[in-house]
Design a protein around this nucleic acid. Sequence first.
DNA 1: ATGTTAAGCGGAGACATCTCCGCTTGTCAA
DNA 2: TTGACAAGCGGAGATGTCTCCGCTTAACAT
Lengths: 205, 205
Amino acid sequence: MKDDKIPAPRMERRDAAENRLRILDAAQRLFDGHGVENVSMNQIAIEAGIGPGTLYRRYRNKSELCLDLIKDTVVLLFEEMEAFLELHASAPPRERLQGVLALFLRFREKKVQLLAGVENPASSGRGFQARAASPLYEELHGLLVRLLDEMAAAGQHQPDSIFTADLLLTALSSDFYLFQKKTRGMSSETFLEQLFLSFLGVNAG
Amino acid sequence: MKDDKIPAPRMERRDAAENRLRILDAAQRLFDGHGVENVSMNQIAIEAGIGPGTLYRRYRNKSELCLDLIKDTVVLLFEEMEAFLELHASAPPRERLQGVLALFLRFREKKVQLLAGVENPASSGRGFQARAASPLYEELHGLLVRLLDEMAAAGQHQPDSIFTADLLLTALSSDFYLFQKKTRGMSSETFLEQLFLSFLGVNAG
DNA sequence: ATGTTAAGCGGAGACATCTCCGCTTGTCAA
DNA sequence: TTGACAAGCGGAGATGTCTCCGCTTAACAT
């Protein structure tokens, strides 16, 4: 073997770095002005003063771009969650699950548009398949599975934790959540409560 | 008032009727050959020998076209369900719900592609919002609500039936169902069982 | 038959996503 | 410095969805 060092992690090019900023900046500006929904990748490229190819090289779709825009907030969310779980380490798992979900819903409310953008690959890949492949989904899923397994150990939960976590996250998706709010006229609190009643046959109270 | 008869329900034009057939025929042929997923409205228009405008006049999107292609089967499905419910009119509501869901899953298996086509408006409107507006969704939803209300009366179900029905139908959507089968490696039977465990804290027996 | 009328047709084109590839340019090594 | 080279750029264009609108033509009344 001649050289098995990591193949020299060349620095990010200066122009590339600048373009990253221009893109993020342009996107933020357009999103604020017209709503995430109504802004196309094209418009962003133009506003950023770059070609479409350049934009797509960095972000395969609007979803990835949105994710980049809320990445910091997402990190904060997970920190909040971990903090909450640590603080209530000895509380019954059901309460801990509820706290975590409440935190998530609060987060969702703050970032409705961008989060919807993250979850809706617009056109592109296979709906759920795509969503579940995102790092955000996987991390949340892992966290839920942990909690559900605890509940199972305490005899409070029968079914497959993986399945239940998938189901929970589907219920918490933009699509379903916003539908319940807008069309069924449900409040965040009622929503969470109903979720608990449905899934665990248990009062959220 | 001069004339308040119904304003003469002119017959469907001959050419229009013929085009309808050409479209359905072309679509069926292309779907069979390349899979629903991989066929565009454009291709269908070309194969049918008509302009895109003509195609879109009749079907606002691929979803509606797919629905037209399985309409007959859907009618059969509802007849099966009604028959089942009548036959087991005196069985406990939980069993009746289970039977209905099993029938639906069997139907889904038979028409995977087209049903996925119905549920995925490809691009176009607001994900869930659109799905829930379809007549198929609404009818199923109504049926589930009826059953869930029965269960509530029997004290076997706490939460809002409307909410639970939405949740059930989301879990039964192509997206979620196929994800569970393909990615999580779950069988139809296990799926139904897990669904019952999750929702009702009850063994599907 | 014939005229009137609106339903229906079709295709150009606006706009979107996403790819491909030849040219440019920043970075590193010598 | 300078040369080599990959990373990056950009925009033309393939393909798709969906609309708009002037022309055609089937259906009905006369």
